[in-house]
Structure formats: C-alpha cells, structure tokens
C-alpha cells in the first residue's frame, strides 16, 4: 500500500518560498493555492497532501500527528511550548533575526549591563521571558498580536522583542536593534511517530528537500 503523507505549511511568505523546495522533491500542488479556497491541497502525487495553516498552528499539527511533516519558522518553534518534534532540516528560507529593539532616544544613553525590570512588548512571550531570565533580568512582558513597533512610541513598553528582516520598519519608527536573540529561518519538522511508521516516504522526501537546499 502506498503510504500517505501530509505536509503542513505556514501561510504567506514561507509557503511561497517553500514551493520550489517541494518541487525539487517532485511535490507540486494541483490546485492553485492563491485562488482555491480548499484547506487541503492535492498534489501531483496522489498520496501526498498539503495543508496550509497559520504558522503558529504548524507545530501543533505535526506534534499531534495530524500532519507528518511541516515547514515553519524557527521563531514559531522557539515559542512553541511542547517539545517532541524533529527539526530535520534548516531550509534557509524566510530568513530574519529575532531582536530586542528600543527607541533611538533611549539607546543613546542605554547601558545594557544595567537593565532591570524591563517592560517588553512582544508577540513572542516565551522567547522573551527565556532570553531575559537567562540574563538574570526581571521583565514585565506585554503580549501583543502585531505592530510591536508602535508599543514604545505609544508609551506601552520601553523595548520590544520582534523579528527583524530589513530593519526598515524599525528605522521608520525611530527604533534601533540593541540585542540579537537568534537567527531565524524556516525548518522542516517531522512528527516522531511518522518518522518510524512512515520512514520510507518521510526519509525520501526529506532527502530530496535537503538536497534542494544544498
């Protein structure tokens, strides 16, 4: 019997940048994801399906075995509480940096060695908490769902933890990067049981994608 394989992909930029890698493994969606409203996309291979979901849901789908493989940013994995996923390949797509940033005016006289009791606005609560507690710095973390750059300007927080790609948004809002937390790129993740139960097809696909990454 042909083994089936479900791959969970993060909506948006990661999905677009994943397509060439999947194509290298001879996986091409049949439906046009831009026009189709289907949530499960068929591919040229009848036994392989793609599910397109919100990035933050990808680890959950894969962790619980609803998908065998997934493509998701390292930021989401770092924020995801449960472990038990295999992070097989660094796909080197959707690259950016996880940074601490603060207003230029604050940065002028800021001494990182004397940080204490910071107010941090972020979407990445767990990452921020771990990063600062590893440095022994007390924080008050304010969870936001978007437009983190606004928080210091509006007086909601002193600093932010966020993803930075080109840095244009930061500059436009007169913020500067002060601490580097991690380099981020997308990872190919696998469910631990699928690695065993479906290892033939999982290994094949992973190998082809790995070669495509180079």
């Amino acid at each position: 019997m042909l083994q089936t394989l479900t791959i969970a992909l993060s909506k948006g930029r990661i999905f677009k940048e994943s397509l060439p890698l999947l194509k290298a493994a001879d996986i091409v969606p049949v439906d046009d994801p831009d026009t189709s409203r289907k949530l499960i996309l068929d591919t040229n291979q009848t036994n392989i399906k793609l599910v397109i979901i919100r990035a933050a849901d990808v680890p959950t789908y894969v962790r619980f075995g609803a998908a065998d493989l997934g493509i998701v940013g390292k930021d989401v994995l770092m924020e995801f509480e449960g472990d038990g996923l295999y992070e097989l390949v660094d796909l080197k797509i959707a690259r950016c940096r996880m940074m601490v940033a603060e207003p230029e005016t604050l940065a002028k006289n800021d001494d990182l060695g004397r940080w204490s009791r910071l107010r941090i606005a972020t979407k990445y609560v767990n990452i921020a908490r771990r990063f600062f507690s590893a440095k022994g710095i007390q924080t008050e973390i304010i969870k936001l769902y978007g437009s983190m750059e606004l928080a210091p300007l509006a007086g909601l927080s002193d600093r932010i933890v966020d993803l930075v790609d080109t840095g244009n948004t930061l500059r436009a809002n007169k913020l500067v990067e002060v601490e580097h937390i991690a380099d981020i790129s997308s990872r190919l993740v696998a469910n631990t049981a699928s690695m065993r139960m479906k290892h033939q097809i999982v290994k094949d696909v992973v190998k082809q994608i790995e070669q495509a990454v180079g």
Binding site: D83, L85, Y86, E87, L88, V89, D90, R187, A190, M195
Partner: peptide, 8 residues
C-alpha cells in the same frame, strides 16, 4: 540531538 536538528 533529541530534536534531530542537524543545523543545531
């Protein structure tokens, strides 16, 4: 290793 993370 536990995460089978080659890059790490």
């Amino acid at each position: 290793l536990r995460r089978k993370s080659k890059p790490d």
